[in-house]
Design a protein around this nucleic acid. Sequence first.
RNA 1: GUGGAUGUAGCUCAGUUGGUUAGAGCGCUGGAUUGUGGUUCCAGAGGGCGUGGGUUCAAAUCCCAUCUUCCACCCCA
Length: 442
Amino acid sequence: MVKRKYIFDTIEEAFCKYAYQPLETPSMENLSTLMGKYGEEGDQLLFRILDSGDFLRGKASEIVKDQWNKGSASISAALRNQIAEKGLRYDLTVPFARFVVQHRNELTFPFKRYQIQPVWRADKPQKGRYREFYQCDGDVIGTDSLLNEVELIQIIDEVFTRLGLDVTIKINNRKILKGLAEHIEQPDKFMDLTMSIDKLDKMGHEGVKQEMQQRGITPEAVEKITPFLFLEGSNSEKLESLRRMMFQEEGGKGIEESQEILEYADVLKLNNVLEFDPKLARGLDYYTGTIFEVQTNEMEMGSICGGGRYDDLTGVFGLKDVSGVGISFGAERIFDVMERLARFPKRMQPSARIMFVNFGRKEARKALEVLQALRQASIESEIYPDAAKMKKQMSYANNKSIAYVGMIGEDEIDKGVITVKNMETGEQKQVDLEELKALLSG
RNA sequence: GUGGAUGUAGCUCAGUUGGUUAGAGCGCUGGAUUGUGGUUCCAGAGGGCGUGGGUUCAAAUCCCAUCUUCCACCCCA
């Protein structure tokens, strides 16, 4: 928990610094607002919430019979759609879009918000994938300026720098991929194309070629794509080669946008590598412009942060022509990476500088007085809650690596002193309150 | 959704081709040290072997079902 909070705090501080507003939305949404936003796979991965009440009465047998007669592939699926109208959110972006539309009259645009909340996906959990996980989203909505993309890159860079992780920030533009689909004269294969390209790292060139053909892309087209997959050189060199290969209006626009972002980013001194990668795809349907993905350079792990621009996410909720761009940090994955690489700072647990041994009621009263004074001087301190055996109290202090142990027993009360023991050296001496304060703040 | 593993003490795991009283390390408790931890030594507590069936004279062990967690594919943070 402490570690998780550390990640959240780091992200939150970064967003605050760039003037993003905090926002939370309910865990549940109407299924109608969730469905159809995440591609066909996405709908399958939604957790549905069963309606309340006796929802099967008079309905179940008819639905089942109806589907049976139709020879439906999945009767359960049909039934499912009739008995659940709410679902758990799948990400934070779509509920955010819904929120923006609903409150459009109260918000000042461009609207920037960050949101740190759990999301749920009904797939099989495994390494780096959970049924429930936290996302930390930041979005800017109501502006199509590419400065926002740049700002998000800065935030990503800042967060990972502060967490002490070495990452690569990859960017691409959906318009380039779209241009590519037009370039091979199969614009309808846009989604198939991007999904295949995305697998290059995993399956290799041959695998991707096969994948593309399986998805109905003609062999000539596959050959035509090959040079795009092996662009070399610096970001600007890659952009230059792309420009020479592609003439479509749409693709050209994507190239221009990427170029503009990279030019802006040049002014910034980023700590991490910003790489333009025309192979970057991303499965979410709603992205239309720039897309981001962040990967650690230090171990094998899926992306730990991703995002992109969506030109018309609010359109489906009845608010047209509002462009937004956002990113999402995958807290759980970042946690896993930090844990594996042991990157969490050592002293994160709030731990006292001094612990007082509890000798009983009378002695504890005296200790409380001292504690009060220490705390007023901002010295983190505590008293063991029970008058347990000394040995137990000492090992508690030891296990929590508390630097000093203070003892106020009968003798000390009589003499008006405090016995303080240095837990590292084992040294022990008697001091008064002022000396104790000096010792502990030094 | 497809395929493969896993489940034994608080934790990490042993447990042979079914065979008496199910083990270890760490942790915990007590003692050596009644107001002194971290080191050492001694002793002790703690287990319906995931759940429900079945086979057998006998099941942690074999069979079936179910749940959990994990891994690969798909996809994703």
